[in-house]
Design a protein around this nucleic acid. Structure first.
Lengths: 142, 142
DNA sequence: TCTTGACCTCAAGTTCGCTTTAATTCGGAG
DNA sequence: CTCCGAATTAAAGCGAACTTGAGGTCAAGA
């Protein structure tokens, strides 16, 4: 059970120590112990940080991630999570994926379309309409 | 060639007038003309706003979107775009989609896995490893 | 033991994407 | 022509997610 110090964790997780301290202040992670003043982390914090990074990529705020993952304990291996909430998150991510798929199609179209003006290209118009519809539907949600 | 005033554009695009003025300050859009002090927009600004919204959903900053779409001219219908750049963006979106797909799988796994500790579940470990690999690869890029 | 440099805390600063506010200017209906 | 309401500007404010800076502590190697 070797413990990592903040610089090790930072290096492995690819975030700055200041970010780790910030995460701690939000209750997202916790140090196992201190050696003097220095935080000592269990390697399991890296899993938690991976989940945090993943959640951020999915467009969730740190606040939301904290709520989803549950409180950081000293023994972080066993984090308690709300399974329903997580499933909801997964659904949300799926919706996000559908929107992004549309975006990628629209971008590729724009990049290759030979029409003189996109505004006159019917398939561009159609995609824009779809996109607007989507963003109208849950513009507040992500 | 009817022109829209800022409130019309705001209503149709689903953004506040203040956001439109802000976009203008960033060079993302431009008003056709002024009636007194009041901005008058060509309907084509709506297409541009749709693309902007799409880009934002993809996780691009307004700065990046501005660079991709090119300068806003008074006659916005024919915005000049860098096709290579847009294709790159589309690729980026695709990578983002793959990451999110992984995330959704990881979330669903976490929600249903019965293993006593996620840290000990091999498929969880595998997904985390994948995820970390990914986020290591282009963590600076989005 | 002494020094050094990594770590600590707390507060303030930064960037992004807007919104709000305050003071002002007009277009257009009556 | 007058007046109202919608628009204008510049500047300040805001929440999120960190970073930076100042001033202090301490573990460990020479």
């Amino acid at each position: 059970m070797k413990s990592l110090d903040i610089a090790d964790v930072a290096r492995h997780a690819g975030v700055k120590p200041s970010a780790l301290r910030y995460y701690e202040s939000l209750g997202l992670i916790a140090a196992d112990s201190r050696k003097g003043l220095r935080r000592q982390y269990d390697a399991s914090v890296l899993d938690r940080l991976a989940l945090i990074a993943l959640g951020q990529r999915a467009g969730f705020s740190l606040q939301e991630i904290a709520e989803t993952l549950g409180p950081a304990t000293q023994a972080q291996v066993e984090f308690e999570l709300d399974r329903n909430r997580i499933t909801e998150r997964a659904d949300e991510v799926d919706r996000h994926i559908r929107a992004l798929t549309l975006l990628a199609r629209a971008l590729r179209h724009v990049a290759t379309c030979q029409a003189p003006s996109h505004a006159e290209c019917p398939s561009f118009r159609k995609m824009m309409a779809e996109a607007l519809k989507w963003s109208g539907k849950d513009r507040q949600k992500i």
